[in-house]
């Protein structure tokens, strides 16, 4: 039964698991951001930032989601996501918990570049 085996073609592949595996995910970006901008911890996911966001009207950018994704270690593709922000600062104006959103975005950007490696 040895010799060259022809690759079996099944016509489908194994679906990717979309469950967040918190224990497997790296939280280094979250750790860095938390230290660099402590108001990161204050977000209550109310979505006020995302509702006022210019970028959010025309792309799927949401700072509320970005914060959560950083927290859960779901940072794949986030570097590109975060460039959609134009740093206008409207989100900071409306945040009810005083999160320093502009600096937060800059710090996430920085951490994704350096920390995630």
């Amino acid at each position: 039964m040895s010799g060259a085996v022809e690759k079996v073609r099944f016509g489908f592949s194994v679906n990717k698991d979309r469950q967040i595996d918190y224990d497997a995910n790296l939280k280094n970006v979250s750790d860095i951001v938390q230290k660099a901008e402590p108001t990161f911890n204050l977000c209550i996911s109310c979505g006020t930032c995302a509702s006022t966001c210019t970028a959010g009207k025309f792309t799927d950018f949401s700072l509320r989601k970005v914060i959560l994704m950083v927290r859960r270690g779901e940072t794949k593709g986030l570097e590109n996501e975060i460039t959609k922000c134009m740093l206008c600062g409207k989100c900071q104006l409306v945040c009810p918990r005083g999160v320093s959103t502009r600096n937060l975005i800059l710090q996430i950007h920085k951490a994704l570049k350096t920390g995630a490696l």
Partner: peptide, 12 residues
């Protein structure tokens, strides 16, 4: 479910 991300989540 991490309802705010809309994804199931597993944590130990």
């Amino acid at each position: 479910e991490d309802t705010l991300l809309g994804k199931p989540l597993k944590i130990g």
